[in-house]
Design a protein around this nucleic acid. Structure first.
Length: 123
DNA sequence: GTTCTAACA
DNA sequence: TGTTAGTA
Protein backbone atom coordinates (compact mmCIF):
# COMPACT_ATOMS: atom_id res chain seq x y z
CA UNK A 1 0.00 0.00 0.00
CA UNK A 2 2.83 2.35 0.80
CA UNK A 3 4.67 1.13 -2.26
CA UNK A 4 1.85 2.24 -4.56
CA UNK A 5 1.76 5.68 -3.00
CA UNK A 6 5.50 5.90 -3.52
CA UNK A 7 5.14 5.20 -7.23
CA UNK A 8 2.43 7.84 -7.54
CA UNK A 9 4.95 10.36 -6.27
CA UNK A 10 7.54 9.39 -8.87
CA UNK A 11 8.11 12.37 -11.14
CA UNK A 12 8.12 10.88 -14.61
CA UNK A 13 5.84 13.08 -16.73
CA UNK A 14 7.08 16.00 -18.85
CA UNK A 15 4.86 19.08 -19.01
CA UNK A 16 3.62 18.17 -22.49
CA UNK A 17 2.06 14.96 -21.18
CA UNK A 18 0.58 16.77 -18.20
CA UNK A 19 -0.98 19.31 -20.56
CA UNK A 20 -2.81 16.54 -22.41
CA UNK A 21 -3.79 14.80 -19.18
CA UNK A 22 -5.20 17.92 -17.52
CA UNK A 23 -6.29 20.02 -20.47
CA UNK A 24 -4.37 22.93 -19.01
CA UNK A 25 -1.83 25.09 -20.80
CA UNK A 26 1.88 25.01 -19.96
CA UNK A 27 1.52 28.62 -18.82
CA UNK A 28 -1.16 27.66 -16.30
CA UNK A 29 0.69 24.60 -15.02
CA UNK A 30 3.87 26.64 -14.48
CA UNK A 31 1.85 29.36 -12.78
CA UNK A 32 0.33 26.83 -10.38
CA UNK A 33 3.84 25.76 -9.49
CA UNK A 34 4.71 29.34 -8.54
CA UNK A 35 1.64 29.23 -6.29
CA UNK A 36 3.07 26.15 -4.54
CA UNK A 37 0.11 24.01 -5.64
CA UNK A 38 2.23 21.38 -7.37
CA UNK A 39 5.86 20.48 -6.85
CA UNK A 40 7.39 19.03 -10.02
CA UNK A 41 11.00 17.92 -9.81
CA UNK A 42 13.63 19.20 -12.20
CA UNK A 43 15.85 17.26 -14.55
CA UNK A 44 19.50 18.14 -14.96
CA UNK A 45 18.37 20.36 -17.85
CA UNK A 46 15.86 22.19 -15.59
CA UNK A 47 12.86 20.53 -17.18
CA UNK A 48 9.87 19.93 -14.92
CA UNK A 49 8.91 16.31 -14.27
CA UNK A 50 5.47 15.72 -12.75
CA UNK A 51 4.18 12.79 -10.73
CA UNK A 52 0.76 11.15 -10.94
CA UNK A 53 -0.12 12.93 -7.71
CA UNK A 54 0.78 16.24 -9.33
CA UNK A 55 -1.64 15.45 -12.14
CA UNK A 56 -4.37 14.61 -9.63
CA UNK A 57 -3.67 17.86 -7.83
CA UNK A 58 -3.91 19.82 -11.10
CA UNK A 59 -7.23 18.17 -11.94
CA UNK A 60 -8.50 19.10 -8.47
CA UNK A 61 -7.39 22.68 -9.02
CA UNK A 62 -9.25 22.66 -12.31
CA UNK A 63 -12.45 21.61 -10.50
CA UNK A 64 -12.00 24.18 -7.76
CA UNK A 65 -11.53 26.91 -10.35
CA UNK A 66 -14.62 25.74 -12.22
CA UNK A 67 -16.59 26.03 -8.98
CA UNK A 68 -15.47 29.62 -8.66
CA UNK A 69 -12.87 29.03 -5.96
CA UNK A 70 -10.12 31.65 -6.06
CA UNK A 71 -6.41 30.89 -6.21
CA UNK A 72 -6.00 32.33 -2.72
CA UNK A 73 -8.65 29.98 -1.33
CA UNK A 74 -7.18 26.99 -3.14
CA UNK A 75 -3.76 27.85 -1.78
CA UNK A 76 -5.19 28.01 1.76
CA UNK A 77 -6.94 24.67 1.34
CA UNK A 78 -3.74 22.86 0.37
CA UNK A 79 -1.71 24.83 2.90
CA UNK A 80 -3.93 23.61 5.73
CA UNK A 81 -3.91 20.08 4.35
CA UNK A 82 -0.11 20.18 4.30
CA UNK A 83 -0.08 21.47 7.88
CA UNK A 84 -2.37 18.67 9.05
CA UNK A 85 -0.19 16.08 7.34
CA UNK A 86 2.90 17.59 8.95
CA UNK A 87 1.26 17.41 12.38
CA UNK A 88 0.14 13.83 11.76
CA UNK A 89 3.65 12.88 10.73
CA UNK A 90 5.05 14.46 13.89
CA UNK A 91 2.53 12.67 16.12
CA UNK A 92 3.27 9.40 14.34
CA UNK A 93 6.96 9.84 14.97
CA UNK A 94 6.26 10.62 18.62
CA UNK A 95 4.11 7.48 18.91
CA UNK A 96 6.86 5.39 17.35
CA UNK A 97 9.41 6.76 19.79
CA UNK A 98 7.11 5.96 22.70
CA UNK A 99 6.53 2.46 21.41
CA UNK A 100 10.24 1.99 20.77
CA UNK A 101 11.03 3.13 24.32
CA UNK A 102 8.44 0.74 25.77
CA UNK A 103 9.88 -2.14 23.83
CA UNK A 104 13.36 -1.16 24.95
CA UNK A 105 12.32 -0.96 28.60
CA UNK A 106 10.49 -4.30 28.36
CA UNK A 107 13.56 -5.79 26.78
CA UNK A 108 15.58 -4.29 29.57
CA UNK A 109 13.31 -5.87 32.21
CA UNK A 110 13.49 -9.24 30.49
CA UNK A 111 17.23 -8.92 30.47
CA UNK A 112 17.24 -8.07 34.18
CA UNK A 113 14.98 -11.01 35.00
CA UNK A 114 17.14 -13.43 33.12
CA UNK A 115 20.13 -11.96 34.87
CA UNK A 116 18.34 -12.33 38.22
CA UNK A 117 17.22 -15.86 37.51
CA UNK A 118 20.69 -16.73 36.36
CA UNK A 119 22.25 -15.19 39.45
CA UNK A 120 19.66 -16.96 41.66
CA UNK A 121 20.70 -20.22 40.08
CA UNK A 122 24.22 -19.45 41.08
CA UNK A 123 23.18 -19.19 44.73
C1' DG B 1 10.79 19.00 -31.54
C1' DT B 2 10.10 20.15 -26.57
C1' DT B 3 10.67 23.00 -22.58
C1' DC B 4 12.46 27.08 -20.04
C1' DT B 5 12.48 32.00 -18.50
C1' DA B 6 11.21 36.56 -19.06
C1' DA B 7 8.52 40.06 -20.82
C1' DC B 8 4.58 42.61 -23.26
C1' DA B 9 2.10 45.38 -29.74
C1' DT C 1 -3.70 34.18 -19.09
C1' DG C 2 -2.03 34.38 -23.95
C1' DT C 3 1.79 34.70 -26.62
C1' DT C 4 6.25 35.49 -28.34
C1' DA C 5 11.46 35.70 -28.17
C1' DG C 6 15.78 33.55 -27.46
C1' DT C 7 17.81 29.36 -25.08
C1' DA C 8 19.10 24.89 -23.50
Amino acid sequence: MAEKQLRRNLAVLPIGTVMKLTGQTARQIRYYETQALVFPERTIGHQRMFSLNDVDRLLEIKDYLAEGTTMVQIRQIYQKKADRQRDKQLSDEKARRLLANELLSVGGLVGQRSTISQSSKLY
